[in-house]
Amino acid sequence: MAASRPDNSPETAALDYDVIIIGAGLSGMYQLYRLRELGLSARVFEAGTGVGGTWYWNRYPGARFDSESYSYGYSFSKELLEEWEWSEHFAGQAETLRYCNHVADKFDLRRDIQFESRVTSAIYQDATRSWRITLESGAQQSCRFLITAIGPLSTPTLPRIEGRDDFRGQSFHTARWPKQKVDFTGKRVAVIGTGATGIQ
């Protein structure tokens, strides 16, 4: 007599998706495209309200590539390569975000992306050999494979300066710049950091 399988065995466990992807930036969008080609069900969870990843969040004045524009373009589609022309050798943030949206539209990626959905935990379950992820809303989803496409520098770091929490003026982090224009007219402005972002 064959041994019966438990209801939560890998063979019988019902999963929401084959793959869950965290982040709808350049990597996350490409992963979604490729997984569809492989015939797998996939869902992207993105904390922002749109695609683009870095180029969605980093909209500070002067934000642009520090690599040549073409190096950010996808090469999986000849048609995409031929129809898109970068206007600058080092494209600005706005143009790069337009490119990301163009790709999302062209390949109908948004139907498998859930925006304003921040993932707060991802737990691997040995019994079912699957992942259970929890969103900030409390909703849970399960999958066989989990891809984190959030980038290595996606979490902003604030300077540890005494009195920072008591500062009464305006303060902004380049990785979380507001969508509306910031008026610096007549103000004294301090920039902390001299990397590529600070120089821009």
Rank of each mutant, 00 (worst) to 15 (best):
P178Y: 05
C100Y: 12
A14K: 13
H89N: 11
E162A: 11
Q141I: 10
N101A: 02
F107Q: 08
G25N: 06
L40A: 15
T197A: 00
Q141W: 14
P6Q: 07
E85P: 00
F76Y: 00
G163C: 10
D183M: 05
L135R: 09
G92P: 08
H102L: 11
L109C: 04
P152A: 14
R59A: 11
Y17Q: 00
Y124G: 05
W131A: 06
Y30Q: 14
P156V: 11
R36S: 02
F167N: 12
R98Y: 05
V103W: 04
S41R: 15
A3I: 13
E68Q: 12
I161M: 10
G52D: 09
Q180N: 09
F184Y: 11
T96M: 10
L81M: 14
G195K: 04
E37V: 03
R43V: 01
G193V: 03
F107C: 00
W57K: 00
F76E: 00
M29E: 08
I22E: 09
S87C: 07
S71W: 10
Q93R: 03
K187W: 05
S77G: 06
S4N: 14
D105A: 12
Y30S: 10
E136P: 01
F145N: 07
S137F: 04
A13P: 02
V103E: 01
L38C: 06
S77P: 06
I113K: 02
S137M: 13
S137V: 12
A149Y: 10
E68R: 15
R129S: 03
T12E: 01
E46T: 06
L153G: 08
A190I: 12
Y17K: 15
V19D: 01
E85A: 08
V51K: 11
P10D: 00
A3G: 10
T148D: 13
A14T: 03
L153A: 14
A175I: 12
